[in-house]
Amino acid sequence: MTQLSPKVKEKNGAKWCAALAPDLLNGETIWALVSAGRMKPVTSGAAITNARIIGFWHNGESTDKRIVLEVMAHQIRGVDFPVKAGSTSMRVMTDQGEVNFGNLHKDEVGFAHYFIDYLWRNGVDPAVAHAIDQRHKSEVAAQLAEHDYLSKRESVKVFGGALKDKWWNDIRGHAHPGELPWFIINSGSAGRLVAFEDRLLISKTGGMTSLMAGSFGGGRETTFPYSDITNIEYNGGFANGVLEVLTPSYQGTGNHYYWRSTNKARNKASDDPWTLSNCLPLAKHIYREAQPTLNELHRKIMDAKRPQVVVHHAPADPSPAPAPAADAGLADELTRLAEMHQQGVLDDDEFKAAKKAAIARQS
């Protein structure tokens, strides 16, 4: 049964235990709760379990970052309750330095010292040891995976300035597990164009970017599957321009002007490239640098729109095939295939295979 310090009410104790329950390790139980709390990082109280000391935050709603501070039993090297300016704090010493769990009432000092000292001398409960070992392995695996991701991230082509970590995090939120973009065009405060293998993302998030996009504190993020893109245009002036992704939902409107809508609110400026979800204001020199890669992107878009021709070979039939009923049908089909080849819908290999199949059907 969890013991409560003299300054923890039973009602709060029950809430704290319920809030911490999902974060406890297998076999871990809460021995005691004290009101020790601090402002930075913010904590509501401290829990002493059969494995560790926890500084936690609980506001009755959020379930994020409940455990803010942690010292495992084997890390404890001492405990102190210094008094400064009339306030008593609970500080646990470790090999890496002291961990300040915040201020508590002087009447709680003896209570907290007893349970921390008991945990220090007895160590982690064997019932929890296996769970701690598994958590450690998971943490190591996660660190290795993160290191691998960051290493591979260095190989992504980035045109424009280097990306901030928060922008990488936004991009990562739109990627599949382990997926990295093919290339990125970074237009700074105007946003970013991110090219994955099968889709484009225009991201306008964070700070000045979201403010210019008419969504202060939030952002505009739009994904365009390659199969939906009809064209990518760059409408440039002397030094700046606009990169525009065209789809059936976003039709081209010619040049977008930076200053034409300066007298309008951001969300009312329908022709403002900073606001439009399919437009990225982009300096001309960055566009020139990225142009060869954008040409490769055009080829990927064409490949995504090209119909797949599947040729089925009929099994050999020992009986003689009847003569074709009408030679005109074969001629019409070959003419149609030739037109598709000329238009680029079928490449050379696909055209040869389709023509061979048509002749085989008519033979």
Rank of each mutant, 00 (worst) to 15 (best):
H136I: 13
E98N: 04
S87A: 13
W182G: 05
F81R: 03
Y114R: 12
A73W: 03
I76A: 04
N186K: 09
P181T: 07
R77Y: 01
W168G: 13
S138P: 00
N103Y: 14
V109Y: 06
V194T: 14
R121Y: 00
H130R: 15
N122R: 09
P82Y: 02
F183H: 15
D107S: 08
K152Y: 00
M93P: 00
V124Y: 05
M72C: 09
F115E: 02
T88A: 06
I76K: 13
N186M: 08
L150Q: 13
R192H: 12
S189E: 11
G102E: 09
A85E: 14
K106G: 13
Q75H: 06
L104G: 12
P82L: 03
S155V: 06
K106D: 08
R172N: 14
R121E: 11
V99S: 05
P181N: 10
R135G: 08
D95T: 12
W182H: 11
H136L: 11
F196I: 03
N100W: 03
H174R: 15
K84F: 01
N186H: 13
A162G: 08
R153Q: 15
V109L: 01
T94G: 07
D165V: 09
V158S: 08
A162N: 14
V128Y: 05
G78H: 03
P177V: 08
Q75R: 10
A73K: 06
R135T: 01
G102I: 06
A141Y: 04
A190V: 07
H105F: 15
A145F: 06
G110Y: 12
R192K: 15
F196P: 03
V140C: 06
R121L: 07
W168A: 13
A141T: 07
S155T: 15
F159L: 14
Y149W: 15
S151R: 12
G173C: 09
F183W: 10
R172Q: 11
D165K: 15
I171P: 09
P126G: 01
D148K: 14
S155E: 11
T88L: 02
G110V: 04
Y114K: 11
Q134I: 04
A141G: 05
M90V: 04
L163N: 10
L150I: 08
F81Y: 15
S155L: 05
A131K: 03
V99P: 07
P82M: 03
H176P: 00
F101Q: 02
A112F: 14
G160C: 05
L119T: 08
H136F: 08
S89P: 00
G102D: 11
I184D: 02
G102K: 11
V124L: 09
